[in-house]
Design a protein around this nucleic acid. Sequence first.
DNA 1: ATCATATATTCGCATATATGAATTGATATA
DNA 2: TATATCAATTCATATATGCGAATATATGAT
Lengths: 107, 107
Amino acid sequence: MISQVSQLHAEICRTLGSAARIEILKALSDGEKTVNELSKTLGLKQANVSQHLSILRQRRVVATRKEGTNIYYKVANPKIIQACELMRQVLIEQLQETEQLTKTVGA
Amino acid sequence: MISQVSQLHAEICRTLGSAARIEILKALSDGEKTVNELSKTLGLKQANVSQHLSILRQRRVVATRKEGTNIYYKVANPKIIQACELMRQVLIEQLQETEQLTKTVGA
DNA sequence: ATCATATATTCGCATATATGAATTGATATA
DNA sequence: TATATCAATTCATATATGCGAATATATGAT
């Protein structure tokens, strides 16, 4: 009863369901970076970043470009960044609502 | 090193990381529905739908309205629907790329 | 060939998640 | 009161996921 497309859709969402991977995407949203750069920027171990990138690559959320020893990663489709941005706005609105609420209760 | 916001962002994504919940959101995107309606429409057990709705409610992805015995669910923020729509487009583009690829290989 | 650097993979463990079954609670109605 | 309906919760179990540590692979330089 559950469509194949929804199955794939859920898989992409699960792929984004890790704070580390969200940070990686955010870091990549302003241009491509190597594994090492990401590792240093985010303060995560290289192996760990590589694992997350592997998962993101499998689902084609990121794409790669090889240059010598380095592998440059970028977000595969700008719409993914747009979707993330929308979700972040939802989050912000949620937080604002909560603030509103605590203020009202406090008054 | 990983921001609180990214943590929350990932939580929302994980919340959407279930095909059943994606279907529920799709079903709710054209207006509010009760648990029973969803259960029948999606062909899932009531208890199961209720569980999923409970998860969606916790993360405030859906909102409820009570009317007599019934509880009507709706998507809490239209931006969530927009984000889902974007991700679905990404999916479609991915599938098209794959088709393109298989055609090329086949030729 | 050796070494250094960049990236990927594997393993083991702890934790998280999904699901079905059974139960409970609340409301309506005969 | 008895019963049917709708929804939520609890529990047990199977499965998936995240992460660190160690190891492997690949490329480039000496």
